[in-house]
Amino acid sequence: MPVPDPRSLDFAALETLRLVHTLGSFTAAAEVLDVNQSAVSYTIAKLRSCFGDPLFVREGGRQVPTERCEGLIAHAQGMLDTLDDMVEPDTFDPANSEHTVTLACNFYERILLIPKIVAALRAQAPRLRINVINSLGDGHLRLLRREADLLIGPFGRAESGFHSRRLHEERYACLMDPGHPAAGKPLDEAAYLSLNHILIDYNGTWKSAYLKEIEAAGHTLRPAITAPSPAGIARMVAASDLVATVPRRMGEAISDGLAIRESPFPGTFDISVVWTARVNASARHAWLRERVFAACR
C-alpha cells in the first residue's frame, strides 16, 4: 500500500488529530465531530502512514500522544488557529448568531455570576448557545486547548498569550450556625484554628488563598471534615458545631439564615475574566467579553 502524500492532508484531518490529542479518545473525538469512530480511526491511520509514527499509544484507557505527535500538534495548532482567524468575520450580529460560547468556571461563579451573564447574553443574542463547564484548577489550559472561550474566576494570568480583566475583589469569611458559640464574638487566630472546620479541598486541584495565609503564619488547619466542593456546605453547617471558610459573597448567597463572621485569615483575592491573545481581536469574542463585564459590574 503506497504511503499517502502529506500534501494530500486537509484541515479536517489535522482537526481530528487535535481532538484525539485533547480528548485522549477516538470515541470522544468522533462524538465531537459527529462521525463514526471508524472515520476517526481511518483518519489517524492515514496520518500514521504519512508521518511514519504511531502518533498515539493506548495507556490506562487513554490514547497517549507520542513525542512525534506532540511536535505535529504544535505545528497543526498554529495552522488551525490561522484558519479560524481567516474565517472569523470582522463584525458580529448577536441578534442572529447561533454560535456556541463556552464559559469555564467553578461553583462560586455558577452561583453568583453565571445567572446574570446568561440573562445578559440571551437578551441580545436569543439564539446563542451557552455551554458552562468546570474549570477546576487548570482553566487556562482549557482556553489554550480551545475548550472554552472565557475563563471566569480567581485565575488572573499575567504571562504572554493571555489577557485578563478584574471583575471584583473577594475575601474569605466563616459560615456557621447562628447558635454556634463563636457566632457572637470576633475570631482571633487561636479561636479560629480551634474550631471544627469543613475544608473544601477541590479534589486537590486548587488551594484556597486563606489556607496559604494560614501556612505562611506557621499554622496548620486540621479539618474535622473534608469536602470536594462547596455544594451542600450550608446544610452541613446548619445546626452543627462545624464552620466552613468560604468566599464571603458566596457565603451570603447560600447562607439561608446562617451566621457569617470575619475570618482572621481573609485570603483576599480577585475574580477575573481571562481569555487568550488569539481571540483578543475577534468581534464575536469582544462582544462576549463586554456583555460579561457589564453583567458582572
Rank of each mutant, 00 (worst) to 15 (best):
S240M: 11
A148Q: 00
T66R: 00
P2D: 08
D85S: 14
M1C: 10
L150S: 02
S49V: 02
G71L: 04
G204M: 14
A277R: 14
P115Y: 13
R171V: 02
R278F: 13
C105R: 00
F56P: 01
N131G: 08
D90F: 11
A173V: 11
S208A: 15
H140E: 05
R278W: 11
H180Y: 03
K116I: 01
R127G: 04
V32L: 14
P54F: 02
D10I: 12
S38G: 08
H180Q: 09
V57W: 03
P115S: 10
A30S: 05
G52V: 06
A286T: 15
M176R: 00
G61K: 04
V35G: 05
P230Y: 01
E98A: 05
S8A: 14
L242Q: 02
T66A: 04
S8T: 14
G204F: 12
I130P: 09
G161N: 03
L17S: 03
G78K: 15
D138W: 02
M236V: 07
A191T: 12
Q63P: 00
R145C: 11
L33N: 06
A231D: 07
E189Q: 15
N96I: 08
S135A: 15
Q37A: 09
Q37Y: 06
R261F: 13
I130C: 09
R278M: 13
P2I: 11
S282N: 09
R62E: 01
L288R: 05
A224C: 06
R284M: 11
P54E: 08
Y42Q: 10
Y108D: 07
R48Q: 15
I225T: 01
L144M: 06
A158Q: 14
T220D: 12
H21F: 08
A277V: 06
V246Y: 02
F293Q: 07
G204W: 11
S49L: 10
A224P: 10
I225R: 02
G179C: 09
A295V: 05
G218F: 13
P154T: 03
L242V: 09
P228W: 14
A253M: 14
P181H: 10
I152Q: 00
R58N: 07
A209I: 04
S41Q: 13
P178T: 14
K185R: 15
D241L: 10
Q124M: 07
A123R: 10
L193S: 02
A76G: 07
R278H: 13
E169M: 13
L150H: 09
S194R: 11
L258C: 07
A125P: 03
A74L: 13
C105Y: 03
F265E: 01
A190D: 14
E215W: 03
A120Q: 03
A120C: 10
F265A: 04
Q77E: 15
A191W: 07
L193D: 02
V274H: 00
R171E: 01
G60I: 06
I198L: 12
D53R: 07
F162A: 03
L136R: 08
F51S: 05
L17T: 02
A244Y: 00
T226A: 13
R248I: 13
D188L: 04
T27Y: 13
H163W: 10
G137Q: 03
L167Q: 02
R171W: 00
W287F: 14
R249S: 09
L167H: 03
L19K: 01
R166L: 05
A283Y: 12
Q77V: 15
I130T: 02
L47I: 08
M176Y: 04
L150M: 06
T22H: 05
I152K: 02
R127A: 09
G204A: 14
A277T: 12
L19I: 04
F51I: 08
E88W: 03
